[in-house]
């Protein structure tokens, strides 16, 4: 046990003194959050999003439903995220600007929506839509930063875990630190767990610091419980560290690991919805994205923060992360070699 803590301490000191990575892991996400908060504080999306239920009348094709600046997203069906109820949820959160229910001939606007009056005017100007009655929902807008902050912190976690564990252990192997440790009574399991724990502590602390630092100025929306959010973050970190350990298990070449880590972080960045919602992107892409731990972490964190989801609602994500971590740990344990 003494040797375990000594290794955790040594690795953590190494990180803290490596000013470059330490400062970067704090400053980079903070810059991103503030940068995006500033860039998107204005008028929001130029594109209007309208959720549609039921099939449009033939004549409608000519006017309202042909406006190019409006994206029409079908919400028919009973799959999760579909149906009237979920489209109205989205409208309340300002993720949709309008919902058009052609079956029961209603249209919904958000009373607090910036685009409501413009859309109403456009809509009522279309004779084919005559007789459809207006209904109203209310809900404060979710600012882009509220939505973004889980994404940026999740991304930072991913980089910190994959490089901090994967890359660093490979560097130890290449420069002979691992060989030196192999000559001591330290077990591979003890060494790896110490590395993982040190990284866990570091990432939890930097994430909390980034969150607290930006929250002090931006006051993020927080509907759910802090405890649930911590659990999501912790499981997320564990899953990323486990993934990093697969790279660390055997490889000897730092450049190769660097390339491989980039190879998997790039699609995660692009597809996990860090910066932009994947709503409306091809279903194949979305199902690929579901296999990434980052997607699951961000989704769960957003549900907790934006919708006040509890443990029950995010159970599928938590389960995914737990299974993913267990599988990744088993693979890396089976592959691990000192040299």
């Amino acid at each position: 046990m003494r040797q375990f803590w000594a290794m955790v301490y040594a690795r953590s000191m190494e990180f803290v003194r490596d000013r470059g990575s330490f400062v970067w892991s704090l400053v980079f996400p903070i810059i991103l959050v503030f940068g995006f908060a500033f860039a998107f504080s204005g008028n929001g999306n130029a594109l209007f999003k309208v959720g549609v239920l039921g099939s449009p009348p033939a004549a409608a094709a000519a006017s309202f439903m042909a406006i190019e600046q409006v994206q029409f997203i079908p919400y028919d069906g009973s799959a999760p995220g579909k149906g009237l109820a979920s489209s109205l949820d989205r409208l309340r959160r300002h993720e949709l600007d309008m919902v058009l229910d052609l079956g029961s001939r209603d249209f919904y606007l958000n009373a607090q929506g910036k685009n409501a009056s413009l859309l109403r005017r456009l809509f009522l100007a279309d004779p084919a839509m005559a007789g459809i009655s207006e209904k109203t929902v209310t809900g404060a807008p979710i600012r882009y930063v509220d939505w973004l902050v889980p994404g940026v912190i999740g991304m930072n976690m991913m980089f910190s875990c994959l490089f901090g564990v994967g890359f660093v252990i490979v560097r130890y192997r290449k420069n002979g630190v691992l060989k030196r440790l192999k000559a001591t009574p330290v077990s591979a399991l003890g060494f790896v767990s110490a590395q993982a724990l040190s990284r866990f502590i570091i990432v939890i602390m930097t994430s909390a610091a980034v969150f607290a630092g930006t929250n002090a100025f931006l006051h993020f929306r927080m509907e759910g419980s802090w405890l649930t959010l911590m659990l999501v973050a912790s499981l997320g970190i564990v899953s990323m560290i486990s993934l990093g350990l697969i790279f660390a298990a055997r490889l000897k070449n730092e450049e190769l690991v660097n390339g491989l880590v980039n190879l998997i972080t790039f699609p995660m960045l692009a597809l996990s919805g860090v910066f932009f919602s994947l709503e409306g992107s091809p279903p194949i892409l979305r199902s690929v994205a579901k296999a990434f731990p980052l997607t699951q972490v961000i989704q769960a964190a957003r549900s907790v923060m934006l919708d006040g989801a509890g443990m029950a609602q995010i159970a599928p994500q938590l389960l995914f992360l737990a299974v993913f971590s267990a599988a990744a740990l088993a693979i890396s344990a089976a592959l691990f070699k000192w040299e």
Binding site: F15, Y172, G176, A183
Partner: peptide, 15 residues
């Protein structure tokens, strides 16, 4: 029970 000094070894950095 064994003490080892390799011909070339790296030491942990930053400590």
């Amino acid at each position: 029970k064994v003490g080892i000094q390799f011909q070339t070894t790296a030491l942990p950095e930053f400590i």
